[in-house]
Design a binder for these strands. Structure first.
Length: 651
DNA sequence: ACACCTTCAAACGTTTGCGG
DNA sequence: CCGCAAACGTTTGAAGGTGT
């Protein structure tokens, strides 16, 4: 394992010490990777290394220059090539210099007690966290100088992408060394030496919840060594979510405990329970008090806002049973029994109703051109392998027959009168046309429920028959490959398409719920909910997307559908209720010393205490045990965590 | 119960670039 | 010219949440 470590920097720095001032500290990591091969090299080789470094430097500078330029066109093809980290780095500016009054206000409160800050996305939650972090780290430096045990601050996020983003923001705003941890560091994780080094180098970390949890479990760090916990999107703290598990380790009754700052746009995200109870549960879980600000406090920042909220009605949709296309029938006859295609068939049937027959057929066309088809074919072969050979052949033949059907099918253009598009799509087209042609909107986000819908709509609005001048579409969806769908997007793909949207290369984004959290596009001034918005949090979050002075929020509701209307009204009133609750004075809902109800903490007691001092919960103990065994390395028979953990999970 | 969404980690596969 | 290793992408599995 030790031979896989990254070679030390010294060799390299010596070789290039003619230009040390050009070495930006934040680039160290990349450098190490780029020139990691630099070892004890003969002169000639060293010169070559120098040259490579020079080239790398130049390349890097070109990229930085390009990033700072507002020159879209020439960057278009480059964008895909730059690493995720680079992409995010170029887009952050220094924000800490100019805090607003309400931010100072909330910061003061967070300084004195555990707080959950409730603010709309885009109104600078991160800035409050940065202020608090700076303060805590300053105190920490003093403490360390007077000989106290060193402590570390953690900024906990939920997604890897946010980890990059927040790290970029924090490092560009604070002078302190901040590390970044997420699950991608395969070799280093589980190596105590690595962590010791990390802790000595950095005073704060941005990390995903999971990784912090495993660190706590393995005893690399304990709660007593932490001075600050910042939870991004804190409303996730519930049930057995990683946030909640971290909080289980939190010493609730001691004085010397980490300060907590939760940040969220809306403290609850369920629609069934009473919002007040849910919000109080959250306060209990996080041992914190909810704090927010009134509209007046937001002041001029929001006064000139001209919000319009509208509901668009569309004609009742066709029954999926009656709108099936001929192509669908043909394919269904062919592979209807293949479970691999069930999802596709189901979606296509719905699509023919919700989006229109043209889209439904188009779906198959896109599916066939994608590699998806080949994959499904291969999977069909694998799945049926154990069965009868005859069955297997039969299934494979059906798949390839389907391919032929799709290939031979005549895919016409969209009909002139749009009769093969659904009323919903036509309405959406009208709204978008209005937005881009008359309002001259800059950016628009359309939220949909399913990923394939986003994919299809993106394709649809690129068709010449229907496209709107000046509108450039893209889509953004999550990255679960396993769910059988033509549409897919890796983490990098998400970042790239979001960056393009921010920069204006695309100005209309079709997105699933991934985009509801975390992203922040200031220019965005139109938000459309294509599928019904079902819960209060969706309503708040998607409204919070936009913070342009004139801003349009459109919800699409089926006309004469009483259920839709009621659902929407419920979400709206819940959102209103929640707002009122948060703005009530804290005294009205005081949680006395966080007397935690027993049922909230019923299975929190730690059952094992490791030598390193980490309390283990039952849920983590198996993994830990498996790891310990794999560390022992019994003659290579059990070398992988997974093997061991599978063994134990059978017990 | 089920289908849908999300996440992370680990295991594979493929490309690319370098050195012998 | 060939072979190896790093980087990157893809697939799989397990977990969690939500809502009908």
């Amino acid at each position: 394992m030790s031979d896989k470590q990254i070679p030390p920097m010294e060799d390299y720095l010596q070789a290039t010490d003619d230009q040390p001032e050009l070495v930006d500290a934040s680039e160290d990591e990349k450098q190490k990777k780029d020139v990691g091969q630099a070892q004890k090299a003969p002169i000639a080789k060293r010169r070559k290394q120098d040259m490579q470094f020079q080239q790398w430097l130049e390349k890097n500078q070109r990229e930085v220059l390009a990033a700072s330029r507002e020159d879209m066109g020439s960057r278009l093809e480059r964008l895909e090539k730059i690493s995720v980290e680079k992409l995010l780095k170029g887009s952050t500016e220094r924000i800490i210099a100019s805090p607003r009054e309400y931010q100072i206000d909330l910061y003061e409160r967070a300084k004195n007690e555990n707080t959950i800050v409730v603010l709309d996305t885009g109104s600078g939650k991160t800035l409050i966290a940065a202020l608090l972090l700076r303060r805590v780290l300053e105190v920490e430096i003093e403490n360390r100088a007077s000989g106290y045990m060193p402590k570390t601050a953690f900024f906990i996020v939920e997604k890897v992408a946010l980890c990059f983003q927040q790290h970029a923001v924090l490092t560009s705003n604070l002078e302190f060394p901040i590390g970044k941890i997420f699950g991608d560091m395969k070799g280093e994780i589980g190596d105590p030496e690595f962590w010791r080094q990390q802790f000595s180098e950095n005073m704060a970390f941005v990390c995903t919840a999971q990784t912090l949890l495993s660190m706590l479990g393995a005893g690399f760090i304990s709660m007593s060594q932490i001075n600050l916990l910042v939870f991004d999107e804190a409303h996730h703290t519930k049930k057995n979510h990683a946030y909640a598990r971290i909080m289980e380790a939190y010493p609730r009754w001691e004085n010397e405990r980490p300060r907590i700052l939760g940040m969220t746009a809306s403290p609850v995200d369920s629609s069934k329970a009473d919002v007040r109870i849910a919000a109080m549960d959250l306060e209990e879980m996080l041992c914190s008090k909810i704090a927010t600000i009134s509209d007046e406090a937001l002041g001029g920042f929001r006064d000139h806002r001209d919000e319009t909220e509208r509901t668009e009605r569309y004609e009742k949709l066709e029954d999926p049973q009656h709108s099936k296309t001929q192509l669908w029938e043909a394919i269904s006859r062919c592979i209807g029994s293949n479970p691999q295609f069930k999802a596709h068939l189901g979606f296509a049937k719905d699509a023919s109703s919700v989006l229109g027959t043209w889209c439904a057929d188009r779906y198959w066309q896109l599916l066939a051109t994608n590699d998806e088809m080949a994959r499904l074919e291969a999977k069909t072969g694998r799945d049926t392998l154990e069965l009868d050979v005859f069955d297997s052949d039969e299934a494979m033949a059906a798949v390839s027959r389907t391919r032929d059907i799709i290939r031979d099918h005549q895919f016409g253009p969209i009909a002139k009168d749009w009769s093969d598009l659904s009323s919903k799509v036509k309405t959406l087209h009208g709204v978008l046309e209005n937005a881009f042609c008359q309002r001259l909107s800059k950016r628009c986000i359309v939220f949909v429920e399913q990923r394939a819908t986003a994919f299809l709509l993106t394709d649809l609005f690129q068709q010449p028959e229907i496209s709107i001048p000046g509108m450039r579409v893209a889509y953004m969806i999550g990255s679960n490959a396993s769910s059988a769908n033509a549409a897919n997007m890796s983490l990098k793909g998400q970042v790239v398409s979001l960056q393009k949207f921010k920069r204006g290369e695309t100005n209309c984004l079709f997105a699933t719920s991934v985009a509801e959290e975390g992203i922040d596009v200031p220019e965005c001034d139109v938000v459309i909910r294509f599928d019904l918005c079902v819960s209060a949090i969706q309503y708040i979050q998607s409204k919070g997307r936009a913070r342009q002075s004139s801003f349009l929020y459109v919800t699409m509701v089926e006309s004469n559908n009483i259920y839709h209307h009621r659902k929407f009204q419920q979400a709206k009133s819940a959102a209103f209720e929640l707002q009122r609750f948060c703005r009530a004075l804290p005294e009205d809902r005081k949680v006395e010393d966080f007397d935690v109800r027993p049922d909230v903490l019923k299975d929190c007691e730690s059952i094992i205490t490791t030598a390193a001092g980490g309390g283990l919960k039952l849920i983590d103990s198996l993994a830990c045990l498996a790891k310990w065994i794999s560390d022992q390395d019994y003659s290579g028979s059990i070398t992988k965590n997974k093997t061991a953990s599978k063994m134990f999970s059978r017990l």
